[in-house]
Design a binder for these strands. Structure first.
Lengths: 345, 345
DNA sequence: CTGGTTACCGTAAACGTTTGTGATAAGATG
DNA sequence: CATCTTATCACAAACGTTTACGGTAACCAG
């Protein structure tokens, strides 16, 4: 591998000049710079990252921290892959590279993060799937590692974050149900303590209250975020005495199982039960009857995360004042919530 | 951040001794080693990776190269996440860390790899979704970067690789179909030039020949590897004059659309058409009627990849002679291939 | 012609490690 | 006691960069 010394020797100039030429420093002659760039291309020279990092104390890389268990369950359907795609292409424009740091399911996420921070192989981080109290945030703040969180948290630090508009989704969904005459409205959550569930539930309650509908704890159903969970949630729902007429699925991976359970009783989404799902995923996009849901651009989200991080690192300037941002979701109208309840039935 | 110099000063010994103590070198007193380790823990010292890399020329990290576009389409369903999980936990045992290097959809994979190689931030690589002719392999061989490929290739270098047993899957499937009386057997492929499709098709042809069944090009259907593609493949199939009675889905993400299209004609998998899918995915696991398919442990595959790479790097020893390995798949019997054709219909 | 500015470039230090070489003292051997 | 081995450590070089500093020549103004 050719290093800067080889390059300098080849050109008969000092390595300092070579470095300045390559890094677009001002005090270097236009001709020599051209020669240097040419020679670098000819010899295939690329700066050694270790040397550069050591000297500059910076790595030109951003880390995206994910738990493979999160990726396998709660956020299935290649949620992360879309975000990664956006992140990578936004960072590349600033000559930064993205490295994904995956915490395997048999390791403690905090220990893992500690090791990654110590390694100093990234200049900043993106963490995902935040918990209501998230120790990783405390750790990053303490170690002064710039980061942005995908997901809100109550850990009590004012770091930059972006979160999906769970509250808006819940509100729009409830409004939509109510406007079609529903009053017994269920919500299906997962068992995890991700912050997402809390936000959904709060907004669900608030929306009901706004419409003068009493909150009934029995209408809060919990299940695994997969087909099986959906089947079980549907079973619970169908066995209830005063059966709900509508349900909001916080994890629409449950939808398939729900449809399946309904079919067993010759019931159909949109005719016998109104369903709104979250988040318009590739698999769920083809339901029949089609699922009313909320979608977002994962790529754009990734780009926004990258920009927020770079802003907080001072790499790019932004007029944005807000440290946090709610990411809007678009309603995708389907047939699964077509059921209209007659008020005088 | 505390560095080795601080640590040495704090202990009143030289940095060389500190380094040797930390790295388990022989020539250091037992007591001083204990003191060093204690002090390192107290002060929270962790070796700076840049300094170490620069000196040793090694990074203690392994890179997993993926194309986000592959991850989003052909290999959906968190295929990669499972493999990553296995990789990470196997590498961690050797004190190596995994970094995932995602090539975004708007960048050329070869340029991306070139940059990553030049960055020298990993000691070895795992590449995935190989093509029949894969320039990345040429590049890695030329740059002497140790690597293992997930997927075979005809690029013509004898590098270590692991590939799923596509040929076995096709053979078992065809045998199964034939033993149940089928002779018009279709196969559904994707449009891409991934090596997987080629292997499947070859084995499909060979298996038919073995059973004395003539190969009919019309029975090779192609579609997108998603619900939509499955729907279209099913439509083609149903319109055929001499309609096949069985079909092998190379990408079972097509299954949902296929079932949907069948239902439109009041047809059912297992009763009117035999279906075998590949690869038992989370989403496809809950079909009704249940889908006969082939499964594998993604985690174990990740572990095997890691071990093969480390063997080729000389990090671990292995009695294994083979440079390549076919990864076996287990048949998961379902109801979708229950149809038995009467030979004298 | 002199003094000062400018443009360009070479020199060397620094980043944090690891490791080869040699030094010192203690112990072993004769 | 003299010499040889051994254990333990200090010293310093090296990895490949970037960058502050100083130096040289050219140029310009007076």
């Amino acid at each position: 591998m050719v290093n800067i010394k080889d390059l300098a020797k080849h050109l008969n100039i000092s390595i300092g000049t070579v470095s300045r030429a390559l890094n677009n420093r001002p005090d270097v002659n236009k001709d020599t710079r051209k020669k240097v760039l040419q020679a670098a291309a000819d010899l295939g020279y690329v700066a050694n990252q270790s040397g550069r990092s050591l000297r500059q104390g910076t790595t030109n890389a951003i880390g995206f921290l994910i738990n493979t268990s999160d990726a396998n369950e709660a956020n299935s359907d290649n949620f992360f892959m879309g975000v990664i795609d956006g992140l990578q292409s936004a960072l590349a424009k600033k000559h930064l590279d993205l490295v994904v740091l995956p915490c395997s399911s048999d390791e403690d996420p905090e220990d893992y993060l500690k090791r990654m921070v110590a390694r100093r192989l990234v200049d900043g981080m993106i963490i995902s799937a935040t918990h209501t109290i998230d120790k990783r945030i405390t750790l990053l703040v303490k170690n002064k590692v710039p980061f942005v969180a995908l997901g809100q948290s109550d850990t009590g630090s004012n770091h930059p974050w972006i979160d999906l508009d769970f509250e808006g989704v819940a509100q729009v969904s409830i409004d939509r149900f109510v406007s079609r005459g529903h009053s017994r409205i269920a919500i299906a959550l997962s068992h995890s303590d991700l912050n997402l569930g809390r936000l959904f539930l709060n907004s669900y309650k608030a929306s009901l209250k706004r419409h003068g509908i009493a909150f009934d704890p029995k209408l809060v159903l919990k299940g695994a975020t997969n087909d099986q969970g959906g089947y079980e949630v549907a079973s619970q729902l169908l066995e209830m005495a005063d059966r709900p007429t509508a349900i909001l699925l916080v994890h629409e991976l449950m939808a398939q199982g729900l449809y399946r359970r309904l079919a067993e009783d010759d019931l159909q989404a949109g005719r016998d039960l109104s369903i709104i799902g979250f988040r318009n995923s590739a698999q769920a996009r083809m339901f029949s009857p089609s699922l009313t849901s909320f979608k977002l651009s994962l790529q754009d989200l990734g780009v926004a995360l990258a920009e927020k991080l770079l802003t907080s690192m001072g790499t790019i300037e932004s007029s944005e004042e807000q440290i946090g941002k709610i990411w809007p979701m678009q309603l995708v109208e389907g047939e699964s919530d077509a059921l209209i309840i007659n008020s005088n039935r």
